[in-house]
């Protein structure tokens, strides 16, 4: 394969760049038609030419129009083979690591109310370090452990924020940890 031949990732990125504005345009149209204020008779409460949904409707129309133009321009570029500023082919991004970072973030958000701030944060910091290429176990454990304790002092002891303690055994364990640290 020639050095500059577009790879699979490059093609996927270009297709995503086409799909993005199209999805925005379609979503704007659907929201404008069905989800502005469902079940509310906005026409009857309208005084003069303006009502409660006029502004968002106008902005959704503008969004639809601008996204549609972006889509058409990109479609034209795609069809004509015009080079654009797609970065996928240059290999500046590690797609897998990006997706994994998002997954770790979502898992942290999911775990917060269940495992509580203290435990989920320690695991989260360790996961991000591993994801970022930190491999020394001592560095990972110490950073996650000391970092979490420092965060607990700042947010719970100093700032008195009502951070989640988790449910069931996690709540008991969090309270025990807070007592050990002298912040409860």
């Amino acid at each position: 394969m020639p050095a500059h031949a577009p790879g699979r990732q490059f093609r996927v990125t270009r297709l995503l760049r086409l799909a993005g504005p199209l999805a925005v345009a379609v979503a704007a149209g659907v929201f404008s038609a069905f989800y502005l204020a469902p079940g509310v008779d906005t026409a009857s409460m309208t005084r003069g030419p303006l009502g409660p949904v006029v502004w968002p409707k106008a902005m959704l129309a503008c969004l639809l129009a601008s996204a549609a133009v972006v889509f058409l321009v990109r479609l034209w570029q795609f069809a004509k083979g015009v080079p654009d500023d797609v970065d996928g082919g240059k290999g500046e991004y590690h797609e897998g690591r990006g997706a994994a970072a998002i997954a770790v973030l979502l898992a942290y958000a999911w775990a917060l109310p269940i495992a509580g701030f203290a435990f989920s944060t320690a695991v989260f910091i360790a996961a991000v370090l591993l994801l970022g290429g930190v491999r020394r176990p001592r560095t990972v454990v110490l950073t996650a452990g000391i970092g979490t304790v420092a965060l607990l002092y700042v947010f719970v002891k100093v700032s008195l924020m009502p951070l989640d303690r988790g449910k069931g055994a996690f709540e008991t364990a969090t309270i025990t940890l807070y007592r050990l640290l002298g912040i409860y």
Binding site: P21, V24, A28, F31, Y35, L36, A37, V40, T42, M45, G51, P52, V53, W55, P56, M59, L60, C62, L63, S66, A67, V69, V70, V73
Partner: peptide
């Protein structure tokens, strides 16, 4: 310009989520 427009209108639409300032109607 075009991408800034899409970004700007997306922001304005997101800003209009919630109760409207004059009639009290929930939107989006």
């Amino acid at each position: 310009l075009l991408m800034s427009l899409v970004s700007l209108f997306t922001g304005i639409v997101l800003g209009s989520i919630g109760t409207d300032p004059l009639y009290g109607v929930s939107r989006l």
